[in-house]
Simulated assay, not measured.
Amino acid sequence: MEKIAVLIPCYNEEKTIKKVVEDWKKELPEATIYVYNNNSTDRTVEIAKEAGAIVRNEYQQGKGNVIRRMFREIDAQCYIMIDGDDTYPAQFGREMAEKVLEYKVDMVVGDRLSSTYFEENKRPFHNLGNSMVRAAINHLFKSNIRDIMTGYRAFSYQFVKTFPVLSRGFEIETEMSIHAVDKNMLVDNVIIEYRDRPDGSESKLNTYTDGMKVLFTIIKLFKGYRPFQFFGSMAFLLMIIAAGLFIPVFMTYLHTGLVPNFPTLIVSGFIALAALQAFFSGLILSTIVQKNRQDFEFKLQLITNKIDNEKDN
């Protein structure tokens, strides 16, 4: 098992990949640097090899697919994930690796939003989106992750080998953050400097399309990880609607002894039944999620024992 692996997912980064690889070779000379090429059509692969990186390929398009491949293939005590666009300085890598190796942190988040991100990033909707996503996740999951969508992170072996990669694209960072919080893993933040892409380097992100994917990912993961809160909120909302329809009919009945609006009464009854169904669905699913957490802890213990055995040998 390697001590530190630097993982760089890449798609058409010939303008910056040489500098990124060389910077990391200087910062962490003991680390093995992997560049995972995701169907680049420029000279990314050639330049990365010349710079001294180990280059591998992932042919399914999308950052999530690349990360799934990296996490499956590489065994290391500490993983550092970094983008190939030279927006994240390598100088913070040593501190992030030490938190994983010395202090047993499972995920170290490179926090851009507390430093230079809003000054360097020239896309105002990206800035707004990052702030909204951070606020939403920290509120829904009761966490304190300062930068949800940063591509600069360090991971432990336990995190990497227990993280189920479901997303295919850039929403993968959101998925990582929620997984770490839900599984009660140790998360720490390191404030980093951010610099915008150099001239000639183009972002692969679409502000609106990828932003909508991230929002849908948050909703999907909240439903999966917090089913009782999700379906309980739905049940509460439906019950309010049902009561709003039922009360006028009931008040009319009390005053006149008649029920003139049978269709409204029937609709309110069906909505109330839907509310009850949502409530009990959330209750059942929350029991399943709790069982999954217990199974996860058992799996985590097996992985920890594997690491201890390898160290002893």
Rank of each mutant, 00 (worst) to 15 (best):
N127Q: 11
K104N: 15
E102P: 03
S114R: 12
N130G: 01
K122N: 12
V109H: 07
E95I: 14
F118E: 07
Q91M: 11
G93E: 03
E98L: 14
F92E: 01
M107V: 15
E95T: 04
N121S: 13
G129K: 00
L113F: 03
V100A: 09
M132A: 04
L128K: 00
L101R: 12
M96E: 01
E120P: 06
A97I: 11
M132I: 12
K122H: 07
E102Y: 15
R123G: 13
N121P: 13
K99Q: 14
R123M: 12
R94K: 10
R123C: 05
Q91K: 15
T116F: 11
F118D: 06
R134M: 05
N121C: 10
N121Y: 00
N121T: 08
R94I: 05
Y117A: 07
D111A: 02
F92A: 07
E119Q: 13
V133I: 13
Q91T: 15
F92L: 10
S131N: 09
S114D: 13
E98F: 15
N130Q: 05
V108F: 09
G110K: 11
F118Y: 09
E98D: 14
D106R: 00
L101G: 03
P124H: 06
H126I: 10
H126N: 11
A90G: 00
E98P: 04
R112S: 01
S131R: 02
Y117M: 14
A90D: 00
K99I: 13
A90P: 02
L128I: 04
V108W: 05
E120F: 06
E95M: 13
Y117V: 05
N127G: 00
V100N: 04
M96C: 05
K104D: 08
N121L: 12
M132W: 01
S131M: 14
F92G: 10
M107A: 06
R94G: 01
H126C: 07
G129H: 01
Y103Q: 04
A97N: 14
N121Q: 12
Y117C: 09
R112Y: 05
H126M: 13
E120N: 02
L113Y: 00
S131K: 03
S115C: 05
V109D: 02
V108N: 08
V108E: 05
M107F: 13
N121M: 05
K99T: 14
R134I: 04
T116C: 15
V133K: 03
K99Y: 14
K104L: 15
T116N: 13
E98Y: 14
F125R: 00
V133W: 09
V100Q: 11
L128D: 02
R112F: 14
R134T: 10
K122M: 13
D111I: 07
V100P: 14
R112D: 10
L128Q: 02
R134L: 11
G93D: 07
V105S: 07
F125Y: 08
L128S: 04
V109C: 03
Q91F: 14
V105I: 14
S114F: 09
M132H: 08
V109R: 03
G129T: 05
G93I: 03
P124W: 10
F125M: 02
D106S: 09
R94N: 03
E102G: 12
K122R: 09
N130R: 04
